[in-house]
């Protein structure tokens, strides 16, 4: 098991893109990979072990070294600030973080409220703008917050803008562009350097 590479994969939105990328890089992944409910999938031919994790948790597994590598969105990296190497921009699942709200709405002067899944990123962003806001942490369906009066603004990822539009929200500011990154545990980076370098090389060749 020691020569296996453990890779933490994000379930959901990024998963398909990530799996496709690995296949493009010439890695043989079993068909069950895509629709399995298993949380751990081993691919002995490639000496890979994949763990399927919540996207927000991928950097945690990698930081603690239970996964050697992981694929994580830049949004998650910014929010979690984990001590891991961000080796490669995989340029998949592109989107961006944005501030949105009801059209032509103003923020509350006394205590502007911002609902988000990214409290850390949102707080830092508004602080840099010279604005003190109250952050309300939500775990999903962030678009609800301005609609029912929980918050004046939301900070969330936008890929096509459809969700915002369908809910009658508009984008106020684009904050930062997001793509997925290949991240590596600092110890694995040194002890399994040969295999990791090879993986990085194969992945960076895909254009």
């Amino acid at each position: 098991m020691k020569d296996f590479l453990t890779i933490a994969m994000p379930k959901g939105r990024i998963f398909e893109d990530a799996a496709q990328l690995l296949r493009q890089a010439g890695f043989q992944l079993p068909p069950e990979f895509d629709d399995s409910r298993k949380l751990i999938i081993e691919v002995p031919e490639e000496k890979f072990r994949f763990i399927l994790a919540k996207p927000m948790d991928v950097p945690t597994y990698v930081e603690h070294g239970v996964a050697d590598l992981g694929i994580a969105g830049k949004d998650v990296m910014l929010e979690e600030e984990r001590d891991v190497y961000e080796l490669l921009d995989l340029k998949i699942s592109a989107c961006y973080l944005a501030v949105a709200g009801l059209p032509e709405s103003k923020t509350n002067d006394v205590a502007p409220k911002v609902a988000t899944k990214y409290p850390h990123v949102a707080a830092a962003y508004f602080r840099e703008q010279g604005e003190q806001v109250e952050i309300i942490k939500l775990n999903g369906s962030i678009e609800l917050a301005p609609l029912i009066g929980l918050a004046d603004r939301i900070v969330d990822i936008v890929s096509t803008g459809r969700t915002l539009k369908e809910n009658g929200l508009v984008e106020y500011e684009q904050m930062v562009k997001i793509t997925s990154r290949l991240i590596v545990n600092p110890v694995s980076f040194r002890l399994k350097d040969e295999r990791i370098n090879e993986l990085v090389e194969r992945l960076s060749k895909i254009k």
Binding site: K2, E63, H64, G65, V66, N185, P186, V187, R190, L191
Partner: peptide, 11 residues
């Protein structure tokens, strides 16, 4: 310098 051991995720 830093030292790394197998099984341990941190230096």
């Amino acid at each position: 310098f830093e030292v790394y051991a197998g099984n341990v995720g941190f230096p």
